[in-house]
Write a protein that binds this DNA or RNA. Structure first.
Lengths: 147, 147
DNA sequence: TTTCGTGCAAACCATTTGCAGCAGC
DNA sequence: GCTGCTGCAAATGGTTTGCACGAAA
């Protein structure tokens, strides 16, 4: 366990939440994931099972919701019929271009975007930012050629 | 009918698609919608029925998918269990802040964002932009007070 | 006339939920 | 010991699909 979440865990305990093995191992799993990898609930469940981490699908969904609410992970939507999840780290955020034709996902980073989000949030009645996402939809180079 | 889509319709016809009353009326309906209003499939179905426009839910879903693919409307996801739809107009796009706690949706516009999206798309192998969305998640002023 | 699009009802499937037992703290 | 969390299985509900009929072109 390279990551240290004990301070955060203490805070959650104070709020009345319990740190169960399922929640803990799920969060650890996210920390060990290669950067930029975002998995669906079902993919997560498979990978966790491979690692011999036992967690039911129902609990997985509940835990994901919990971790999202608590700001540990972010929920992504690529217009598919299921959500994707990844570790949340607002300051080194990445974003996505999505090809409408072939479904290709291209990631990009941009250091200006965070300041930009902060500026907008401030203008909007001091909205407190937890996360932000920039998505661009269109046609990728390959699909442009083919039409 | 204030809007004139006949050129676009002709193009669709050339591609082998048929301009049915359902598709036509649905698109007209979107044009008449107040700016910034984004409805779910079910809300749309109710409103269309009120206007005595007959379209089954199945066809509505198929038509929405069609119009999205053809770039007439955009599909929005607010992290709920259903999608929202609105007219697509990239150059006067608006975006959203979403409160994680109470679900409040705040819209904002920003003229810089379009140029920004274009710049990013160009850097990413000349990706051809059809639409883009900027979402900010966090806690609204009201909910900040309450915690 | 040739397909493509529609309506209906059934199917799908990701996600949620009720409930009884278990386990943090 | 109290109460929140989990696993199971069943339910939910938005969306999709098979099929036969209807209608654009």
């Amino acid at each position: 366990m390279l990551t240290n979440n004990s301070a955060k865990f203490d805070k959650l305990r104070e709020e009345g939440y319990r740190i169960t093995p399922q929640r803990k191992q799920l969060l650890e799993f996210f920390y060990e994931l290669p950067e930029g990898e975002h998995l669906s609930a079902e993919e997560l469940h498979n990978k966790l099972t491979e690692k011999e981490i036992k967690i039911s699908l129902a609990t997985l969904y509940r835990s994901l919701k919990f971790l999202v609410k608590k700001g540990f992970i972010r929920e992504l939507d690529f217009g598919e019929d299921h959500k994707h999840y990844e570790l949340s780290s607002p300051k080194k955020q990445h974003h996505h271009l999505l090809c409408n034709t072939c479904g290709l996902t291209i990631e990009f980073k941009d250091k200006n975007l965070y300041g930009y989000a902060v500026k907008i949030a401030k203008e909007q009645n001091n909205f407190e930012i937890k996360d932000y996402q920039f998505k661009i939809f269109g046609i990728c180079k390959n699909c442009q050629k083919e039409s």
